[in-house]
Design a binder for these strands. Structure first.
Lengths: 159, 159
DNA sequence: GCGTAGAATGAGACTGAGTCTCATTACAAC
DNA sequence: GTTGTAATGAGACTCAGTCTCATTCTACGC
């Protein structure tokens, strides 16, 4: 499996492409791509891991909390940002997969860190088959899926 | 795949067995299996789906909120209860898998409902292989995993 | 059975993530 | 430039979840 933890930068291919793409997504729901929103997207794109609100507040302190929440919510509506629920009590945010690439998460139950990993094609085939089955049997219409592996990250079980 | 949504009752085999097992788990960490804790376990066992705190408060109103939280936290420490983070903002609780059986979740992004499904052995084999790989490559020590499929449940996309 | 130490509980204050409101500012169209 | 509308900042507000502390229960020795 190819892991991408901490090393992939979704905007590597072309940084301006990302922002143009986000702008298109926003325009689709009649929203502007303002400076505050750009700052949030830029941060999520370069961080390479899902960020909590406190991460975001720390990184871009000139964007007030209430605005950051609103930007994230608007970007979520535009399909640009995805909210993920970690095992601790607060939410984290990352760029949506169609702007980056499909991946899963390792959740450290000690420090709360979230690490991205890209799945093998073998794995994804099995998941897709499973999801198809569910759609039929449960009448459940899947839009996406996420595998969360819970455990202890390298730096935590060292200590 | 065998789905078990809404139909499996973990304690079907023997209800008293479950409570004895929980008692053992609690004693292991020097905790008593009191009436309040029994009420919570009983509720989780018979509900057949992960419950939020408001579900629990509604079902057993004579157990105060602060006690319910404490019971859940103690039961979690004993390895009897697992806390799962749904996609909405609040946590849900279910009996740990070694008291029931290994399963995954369908999360309805419209109504917040969480549906349990049991994985195929084929799927679990692939996941285990993937998790082993991670352990080696990332130095991540996995303790458990969960596949969340996000989408719309039958009753939501009917309307 | 009785007394006592420690565990469990209930009530309610407290914390902080996330939401809402509203006055102000920026922008787009004419 | 003017005007209507969208976006923003500040801060009040809500409510899930935690903490504290006085009270009640339980196990155990006598």
């Amino acid at each position: 499996m190819n892991t991408a933890a901490g090393t992939h930068h979704p905007a590597d291919a072309s940084h301006s492409d990302l922002h143009e793409l986000v702008e298109v997504h926003l325009h689709r729901i009649d929203q502007r791509y303002t400076a505050g929103r750009q700052a949030v997207v830029e941060l999520l794109a370069t961080s390479g891991r899902p960020l909590s609100i406190s991460d975001i507040a720390r990184a871009i302190p000139d964007v007030p909390r209430s605005s950051a929440y609103r930007h994230l919510s608007d970007l979520q509506d535009a399909g640009v940002v995805r909210r993920i629920a970690a095992n601790d009590e607060f939410a984290r945010f990352e760029l949506a997969e169609d702007l980056t690439h499909h991946h899963h998460h390792l959740l450290c139950s000690l420090c709360g860190r979230v690490i991205d990993v890209t799945p093998t094609s073998d794995f994804e085939r099995t998941v897709s088959a499973m999801v198809d089955e569910l759609t039929r049997q449960q009448g459940f219409r899947a839009t996406s899926h996420a595998l969360d592996v819970i455990g202890h990250c390298a730096s935590c079980h060292e200590n």
